[in-house]
Design a protein around this nucleic acid. Structure first.
Lengths: 338, 338
DNA sequence: CATATCGGCGTTAACGCTAACGTAAAGGAG
DNA sequence: CTCCTTTACGTTAGCGTTAACGCCGATATG
């Protein structure tokens, strides 16, 4: 069958072509394809078959333009080199995807400027909603959202007065609970190894919670570098200058780095020094001495956030603030209870 | 300042409003905003100021519709719980983002059906291009791409006859090089722990490469479960039933799981058994005994893929197939060279 | 001094689709 | 048999933007 040459511009098959082939109006095809009422079952099936056979693909841009709303949801996360955000994202995307939404993702590296920048570019697509990580944003972000009204979900950090919706956990309480547990084991001189203050505000809240559980001051050591593991090892060495009897880490990966450094330094864990992580990542459970850590409901946060968002998009008002509980994992890198 | 009520429908500021305010035609504003030729510098600046001040945000949907192309790029990856794909993605996104493209991401869990499904839904948005992982797709995918012609980049696995563009590494060669190194150390009875054959075709190619480096047959053990670490530990235990003297793992995370299992079983590594990973993830370097592994240029793959893609989008023809080199990391979980 | 060229801008006609409203025919109630 | 309702469509008028082309005055070119 000779192909081209006959038609100079073979025009992509659109609603028009399907309509002509089916002997109905474009509007009927449009309705049939979207599954909205007003088309008889027989016609719908006939159109669906025809569309399939003709290779018709609806045009999301035209659709969004005509309907003045799209099925695109923007998601902003600090990074993806981290099972924490990968877990949240996974929980969220399964639900959103199932409801017919596509997700546009960006990572900010904890930089509010980049978050704002991304949101500005995202609004070009008239997204149905956006998801932001945390509660601390660029000062201009609120104005931007006010100008382009749409549902906003802030995830991971549950704190009062969200922009719109918020699903996460209470990081201060999680830090406090972990701190209290460790303090109850008899530790008295805590240190913390993690990002420098101000960078990751969730970490700051956890530190505050941990510190509140102890009488003595908590020594905070700032890590740098790309690898969480390497940063943990280096941070641990610097933390030990202050003779702590227990070192808290930003997360389990850095804690593992610290554990390796302790081993290399010939220190006994938990005899000479206790070690505690955060998040209960997969790694923490298979160590010969499982990490003391706090399990965070990451996938669940994503799922709940997505469900609330869908509710909002369907006109139902979900709770503005949802804090999900964490679970202490006693592990074996701190002393056992006497 | 009393706000609403005066105008019943305050209409979002569009090209029209800016044009009216600037006393020029919509077309001039359009040109000015896009930075295309045909507008004097003074007019351009005046319009830009006005647009900024009026809070004008271009409509990507209308733009894509009128221009019949969008600045959206679809990216399909197996998952994000893995520094491998997170690294590739990061390298790619920095470059694409810098060129003004947004990325729509999906994960497939190594399921060709889900990849096809996603691509079908992605084409709705008329993306400027799509990125797929690997070279093995659903049989119908080629037809789908042919119907909606657009640049396609296949990443991670460099193999002949790509759909369009391909940037990755030669997994068979990487496996072979790693295998040869290990064989040269005197190991004779290799085993492999990783996903079941057919699931991750890159892993299959590496296995083939490893096997080719040995005289004896290679025992392959399939892992299951969500956690790479746990899977590695369980897989190692099952692999030892066949008395291998060296166990290769799908990646460094599973290898670490295996290492922990060996330690728990009282086996000496590399005395009793050698262990080799793949990818040189951050984890592998900070272990007391660094992993024998193969370093893969993940971020670089992303960058090169993005650069080639941008070239293609700008009408320049990049090389169809690019294979990037890997670097052997001898580590200490296999014997030293005699 | 006529003609070609070019920068700077405007006009027109889509791009592919959907909201809102219109209409014709069939069925049910009184 | 009229009136109302419901079902199943069709018609009209955009959604906000850009490609293509046209026009006009200003500066080179022969």
């Amino acid at each position: 069958m000779p192909d081209g040459a006959s038609d100079p511009n073979p025009r992509r098959t659109g609603l028009r072509e399907v309509a002509k082939a089916a002997g109905v109006s474009m509007m009927t095809v449009s309705r049939a394809m979207r599954g909205v009422d007003g088309v008889s079952e027989s016609t719908r099936r006939r159109i669906a078959d025809l569309a399939q056979q003709m290779g018709y693909v609806p045009d999301g841009n035209a659709r969004a333009l005509a309907a003045t709303n799209s099925r695109l949801i923007g998601i902003s996360l600090p990074n993806l080199f981290n099972d924490v955000f990968a877990g949240i994202l996974d929980g969220m995307r399964r639900t959103l995807h199932g409801a017919g939404y596509s997700t546009v993702i960006d990572t900010t590296d904890y930089d509010p400027d980049r978050e704002l920048d991304w949101l500005q570019r995202m609004t070009i697509w008239r997204p149905a909603a956006v998801v932001l990580t945390g509660r601390d944003h660029h000062p201009e972000l609120a104005a931007l959202v006010a100008r382009a009204p749409m549902p906003v979900v802030e995830i991971w950090d549950a704190a009062a007065d969200p922009i719109d919706l918020c699903v996460g956990l209470d990081h201060r309480a999680a830090g406090r609970d972990l701190g209290r547990h460790v303090a109850s084991l008899g530790y008295r001189r805590p240190a913390f190894v993690g990002p420098p203050p101000g960078l990751d505000t969730r970490a700051d809240k956890r530190v505050a919670g941990i510190a509140a559980a102890f009488d003595a001051a908590l020594h905070r050591v700032a890590t740098t570098g790309d690898s969480a593991f390497g940063a943990g090892a280096a941070g641990f060495a610097r933390a030990m200058d202050h003779w702590p009897d227990v070192v808290f880490f930003h997360n389990d990966n850095t804690a593992f780095g610290g554990l390796m450094a302790a081993q290399k330094a010939g220190l006994d864990v938990p005899g000479d020094v206790g070690i505690a992580g955060f998040n209960a990542l997969d790694l923490s459970a298979i160590l010969p001495r499982p990490l003391t850590t706090m399990a965070t409901p990451r996938r669940q946060i994503g799922q709940v956030a997505a469900r609330h968002l869908l509710a909002r998009l369907n006109g139902i008002a979900p709770p503005a603030l949802t804090a999900l509980p964490c679970t202490l994992v006693p592990g074996a890198t701190t002393r056992r209870q006497d």
